[in-house]
Design a protein around this nucleic acid. Structure first.
Lengths: 139, 139
DNA sequence: GTCAGACATGAATGTGCCTTCTTGTGCGAG
DNA sequence: CTCGCACAAGAAGGCACATTCATGTCTGAC
């Protein structure tokens, strides 16, 4: 195994996996618990903090703040502070954020269409694991 | 706020957010660190454990095992054990797993195309945060 | 007997998201 | 003065994924 062959192989592979790793990072971010909910809500237009808070079932003020901050940091969301009292803060998707909606919707469509299959697979897997009392085998 | 209006509003909203939550769960799963790498590798055809181990830079035997088991449980991957010594175990995408590749690739394309923007947004956000020594404002 | 190969798993630890609870800010109303 | 409003943030703890290290399994070769 000469260095030149090893370099070529690794270099080629790195290019591929660098893409995959970036995918993975993006997925990890938008896969955070509240991200998609919030992105999809903002896809309908600018919303103020309290609107979002009320409409996202189960989210706390704290989590909403954190999530919005993360999305803002990624450039997906724009935050607008109004110099009024009581304070008012609006959030809207940026162009980047809006461009993310399509692939997210596509993935969401896939998830919705295949939920039953995934759940069934999990149930079957767990049943096989329980029956065997160990790792299920295919032999 | 009568019960009927409240019920209608909540019911309608739950339907939407139930979808979003399922999306979020799926995203969280495939957003796990190694999932996409492994899915995309298997998209090229059946691979044996040790092949995957060698080709995924940085993954340990342990993490590969765990990740593959998770994907198998979700029905995305099929595991085939050969009754030979030394042991041989092959993994391949199921039809479900293959159907996932398209949306994942679409999202990956988006991520690759917008990496620079996200990175720039992050840098800008962090710089604003540092300059202000506090929460950046848009006023 | 030991060792190797290929894969799976147990145990302990680290990390980061998630959550709850609490406090802070800046004004106006009473 | 206290309280309310709308939003942001600090502190502490929980939980699950990720990691490292070690061990286990089943055979064949030596």
């Amino acid at each position: 195994m000469s260095d030149s062959i090893s370099d070529v192989t690794i270099a080629k592979h790195d290019v591929q996996s660098a893409d995959c790793r970036k995918i993975s990072q993006v997925l990890a971010r938008i896969g955070e618990k509240w991200s998609v909910l919030i992105i999809m809500m903002l896809s309908g237009g600018t919303r103020r903090f309290s609107d979002l808070r009320r409409d996202v079932d189960g989210i706390s003020q704290r989590m909403l703040t954190l999530c919005l901050r993360g999305l803002e940091r990624d450039g997906l969301v724009k935050r607008t502070v109004f110099p009024v009292v009581p304070p008012r803060v609006d959030y809207e998707l940026t162009a980047l954020g809006r461009s993310l909606c399509e692939p997210v919707v596509a993935l969401g469509t896939w998830a919705r269409d295949h939920t039953a299959e995934i759940d069934a697979a999990r149930a079957a897997f767990d049943q096989r694991a329980n029956l065997d009392g160990r790792r299920p085998d295919d032999d």
